[in-house]
Amino acid sequence: MEPILIEGTPKTPTIKFDASSGVFEIKGRSIPENSVDFYKPLIDWLDSYKEDPNDKTIVNIRLEYFNTSSSKCILDVFKKLESIYKAKNEVEVNWYYEEDDEDMLEAGEDYESIIRVPFKMIEIVE
């Protein structure tokens, strides 16, 4: 499977989804007006990946800001990962948040309470 590599912009995050390593990354700001357009290719890619996933998939989320329409799309990404996890594959989400950014920590905890995949909350200390 070809990896997805998307450079970040002021409104959209950097995306690195690599099926060969099983390491996925979403990093930066996710505040586009039309989040569905941005995330649809990722969701489609995950649909293919989940047919033959790695034994272990590691997902690193390092978001500085995200808007509420992105929050629904990110949930859709996690739901794909959940189905991979339910099919007896190892999946781990690393949710990074900056020191004192309790809003971003709470956002990670929201997902952790909805999605049945192991989450690690990791504080970035400068």
Binding site: E33, N34, S35, V36, T68, S69, S71, K72
Partner: peptide
């Protein structure tokens, strides 16, 4: 779901 107007209702 995200509405036809593109908002998430959130």
């Amino acid at each position: 779901c995200i509405s036809v107007k593109g908002g998430g209702g959130l």
